[in-house]
């Protein structure tokens, strides 16, 4: 059953550019300009929001080669999550012993 989940994961990573077909944002995940247009102002908290600067904002780096960056994002994200989960598991089993 182990190898099967990796086959599924690999297949989905290969297909991941399909996720780029939609360029509309999710409901409630708009750019600040949207509020300007709809409300005539940007709510203070949203305008002042200070986030950290992400490494690959919106799963891309700049506007060129979106498919390539989407692949990079999928591999980077999936790889990181897999490794961190294994590390968490290691800590877990060590403590259990």
């Amino acid at each position: 059953m182990k190898y099967k989940i990796f086959m599924i994961l690999g297949t989905l990573v290969l297909l991941v550019p399909l996720g780029l077909l939609s360029d509309s944002p999710a409901w409630g995940e708009w750019e600040s300009e949207y509020y300007m247009k709809i409300l005539g102002f940007i709510p203070k908290g949203i305008a002042d929001a200070k986030g950290i600067k992400p490494l690959l904002p919106d799963y891309s780096l700049g506007s060129s080669h979106p498919v390539l960056w989407y692949y990079v994002s999928a591999l980077l994200g999936a790889g990181l999550i897999y490794i961190i989960m294994l590390m968490l598991s290691k800590i877990g089993t060590k403590n259990a012993k």
Partner: peptide, 22 residues
Amino acid sequence: ETIPMIGALSALSFVIMMFNIP
């Protein structure tokens, strides 16, 4: 058995969230 499964399923959750459906 579960250690690699949990890792792979978590990665799968990340990848499936990248499939934006309009």
